[in-house]
Computed example of a mutant assay.
Amino acid sequence: MSGESVLVTGGAGFIGANLCRRLCEDPDIAEVRVLDDLSSGSLSNLDGLPVRVHRGSILDTDALDAATAGCSHIVHLAAVPSVPRSIVDPVRSHEANATGTLRVLEAARRHGGLHVSLASSSSVYGSNPAIPKSEDLQARPMSPYAVSKLAAEQYAVAYAECYQLPVLPFRFFNVFGPLQAAGHAYAAVVPAFVSAALAGKPLQVFGDGHQTRDFTFVGTVVEVLRAAVVGSVTAGPTNLAFGTRTSLLTVIELLEAELGRKLTVDHLEPRVGDVRDSQASSSQVQSLFPDVDAVPLKDGLHQTVEWFRTL
């Protein structure tokens, strides 16, 4: 696919900027573009990268068309993340995540049927108690965020059926790593833990800490996304995680081992909309991307701590 151009929506954000860095290293990718309204991302995340930045919203058709024209692939990562944020402002989550995805798919269709990889979420499984979570399980979303992500991925599936649009929706599971912000009320758990630990503050755990997650290092995620682009891989909704199941208390223990000291933990009331346990079935992603090896949680935490030390 030499000479191809890839648009990353939300490319100035955490996952997007990591992906842009990886795409810029790939000899098969001729051009990397970014569309981002900078509502949560930062241009500083793209410092030194030869990317073409379009500042604008995925809800703006003109901005989308300008960024998409001449592209062959879209990796759609732009979103308003966070379950708690969606509970406070469900309309904003829906407009960005569901309506925004619909507009991206329409842009892909207008510009010649571009290949679209997009970010859904493990939150779509919601209250379904089955472990591990396989892609054929019934979705039981527990929050407006989860509903908006389910709508986004199902729009992609429908566009594949109705318009033969080549798509690949990924269900992300607790992605963490460098560039992930910690300094806000809706920060993800790993950056929140690392930031607090390095600052000598108590780590806040909502609930007993025995809830489990399938933590996935951002380096693993971008390797899969890159392979999806280069191979123009298409499929139905696919878990982007590798079948690990780690409690928050275990993450704290690993962080203590990394830092060489005991950490203080404050237990708070459980949050509405939070899933108790999450673990992916990884058979589908491993079948589609057999050459990708997942970075172990311990190694990913080390890289994350090292990045936070540079701030």
Rank of each mutant, 00 (worst) to 15 (best):
E306W: 15
D266A: 10
A227Q: 15
L59V: 09
A181C: 02
T216E: 05
L288C: 02
D37N: 15
V34D: 05
N45T: 11
D299V: 15
L301V: 14
V124L: 09
F215E: 05
D274F: 09
A199T: 12
R226E: 10
G200E: 04
V305H: 02
A185I: 14
N18Y: 05
F308Q: 02
T244Q: 09
P178Q: 01
E258D: 13
D89F: 03
C162P: 00
R33A: 07
S134I: 13
A257G: 07
C20I: 06
A197V: 09
E258K: 14
S42Y: 03
F217S: 03
R226G: 04
H94V: 13
G16K: 00
D28Q: 15
R261E: 03
T68I: 06
R103W: 09
V222Q: 07
S72G: 14
L254N: 09
V194D: 03
A119H: 08
R109Q: 14
K201H: 12
P166C: 14
N174S: 13
R213N: 06
T310C: 09
R110G: 06
S82V: 12
T220A: 08
D26G: 08
F173W: 04
P90R: 09
R103V: 11
S122R: 12
K201E: 10
A280P: 11
L263H: 03
K201G: 09
S127Q: 11
Q180K: 13
A151P: 07
A17V: 00
A294H: 11
D47G: 13
F170D: 11
S5Y: 09
R109L: 15
S143Q: 11
V189C: 12
S44V: 10
K149L: 08
R271H: 06
R261G: 06
H302V: 15
V285Y: 01
A196V: 10
T101K: 03
T9N: 00
V224A: 01
P237N: 00
H111P: 07
R171G: 06
E258F: 10
N18R: 14
S2K: 14
G273S: 02
D37G: 03
R52I: 13
L255I: 04
R55W: 10
L64K: 01
L7Q: 02
T250D: 12
A160P: 00
V6D: 00
L168A: 15
V275P: 07
R140T: 11
G100L: 02
F170E: 08
L297T: 08
T212G: 08
R261C: 04
V51D: 03
S123F: 12
R55G: 06
E161F: 14
T310D: 06
L137K: 11
G41T: 00
P90D: 07
K298A: 14
G260W: 09
G200V: 10
E306L: 15
L249D: 02
L179Y: 05
Y155K: 07
Q286G: 08
G10L: 00
Q279F: 04
V285G: 01
S117C: 14
P50E: 13
C24R: 01
R245S: 13
R103E: 07
V190C: 08
V265F: 00
F206L: 08
L38D: 01
E106Q: 15
L114G: 02
D266S: 05
I15Q: 04
V275A: 04
S42R: 03
L263V: 03
V265R: 10
A107F: 13
A67D: 01
F217Q: 07
T246E: 05
T101L: 06
A156T: 06
R276N: 04
E161A: 15
R213Q: 07
G112E: 07
R109A: 15
G209Y: 03
